[in-house]
Simulated assay, not measured.
Amino acid sequence: MRLVRLKAPAAPENLKLVEEDHPEPGPGEVLVRVRACSLNFHDAMVMRGVIPSADGRIPLNDGAGEVIAIGEGVDAFNVGDAVVSTFFPLWSGGEPTPAVKLDIPGETIDGYASEIVCRPARCFTKAPAGCTYVEAATLPCAAVTAWSGLVTHGQVKPGDSVLVLGTGGVSIFALQFAKMAGARVIATSSSEEKLAKLRQLGADDVINYKTIPDWGGKVKELTDGRGVDHVVEVGGPATIMQSIEACRMGGHIALIGVLTGFAGEVSIPALFANQIRVSGIQVGNRSEQEDMIRAIAANELKPVIDRCFPLEDIGAALAHYGSGKHFGKVCIEID
């Protein structure tokens, strides 16, 4: 089987395509023929060495494929089932604990940039009916993160207003889930072309944050001075104060990303004086993923795919992802 290993020191040029024998499933394990993967900010940080991983690690957290063999004692899946990976295989539900971070595919354990993988059954859920393997592969990190921030923690409901930042995977899934819930969506981008695409996806209002640098104030204007009920905050230090400005008194910020850095100044009075609730979100658990997958199937939601690359071009996929030109998910298709 073909697979990619990230050789030390971790860097894009040290992603090596190799041939190895595939394992056989033991008790409690399933053998999966991986058909597609997708890239996330987490994967990029691992492959660039920002997040440390072991020498020879197989990268990529998100994978989808077909069960081709089952070990003894597995009753959750059958041969032929379409499955999708989970970001935290040890987090089945409830509140997180430090133990859930022991196994993170592509970081602390091997990921899915491989034609065939053998994993414990808990590492997968069934894929949504009606989704292709490529579409299913976009779900474990970005979609579950958006779902956890908006649905689990935000309790978004019809009539709410939601602000999403940019056109990455989390933000686009947040737009789709918000519209699915009957909410109004305001979306930002620096590209007029991308803003037009956001409108096509259902965004009710769009803001070019380059031409309108005080976009938090613009959000207040668009909501008649009230502010939005939910902000899906993916930017970090360079955007958080504008997100606070955009949020209504008593509103909710799902704090998800660090696209602009890891540290910055935050006005504490702006948070407590406006009684804004901030939820730190790092993906979600298996139970949330299963809830989300049922909702995706019931609403026939289609993930937005920017571009697919073959496995041997994983470096080019990473470069395209890093360019910031993508709209939606960058994927790997494994023939």
Score class of each variant (00 low, 15 high):
Ala174Thr: 08
Gln176Leu: 15
Phe177Asn: 06
Phe177Gly: 03
Ala178Gly: 00
Met180Pro: 05
Gly182Phe: 07
Gly182Ile: 09
Gly182Pro: 08
Ala187Gln: 10
Ser189Met: 12
Ser189Ala: 13
Ser189Cys: 10
Ser191Ile: 09
Glu192Met: 04
Glu192Asp: 15
Lys194Thr: 11
Ala196Ser: 13
Lys197Tyr: 11
Lys197Gly: 00
Leu198Ile: 10
Leu198Ala: 07
Gln200Asp: 15
Ala203Phe: 07
Asp204Ile: 02
Asp205Ser: 06
Ile207Cys: 02
Ile207Val: 04
Asn208His: 14
Asn208Asp: 12
Thr211Lys: 09
Gly217His: 05
Gly217Ser: 06
Lys218Glu: 12
Lys218Ile: 01
Val219Ala: 09
Lys220Pro: 05
Lys220His: 01
Lys220Asp: 00
Leu222His: 04
Leu222Trp: 06
Thr223Glu: 07
Thr223Ile: 11
Thr223Gln: 09
Arg226Cys: 09
Gly227Trp: 12
Gly227Val: 13
Val232Asp: 07
Val234Asp: 08
Pro237Asn: 14
Ile240His: 08
Ser243Gly: 14
Ile244Gln: 04
Glu245Asn: 01
Glu245Met: 04
Ala246Thr: 05
Cys247Thr: 15
Arg248Glu: 15
Met249Leu: 10
Met249Ser: 14
Gly250Val: 10
Gly251Phe: 11
His252Asn: 11
Ile253Ala: 08
Ala254Gly: 13
Leu255Glu: 10
Ile256Tyr: 10
Leu259Thr: 12
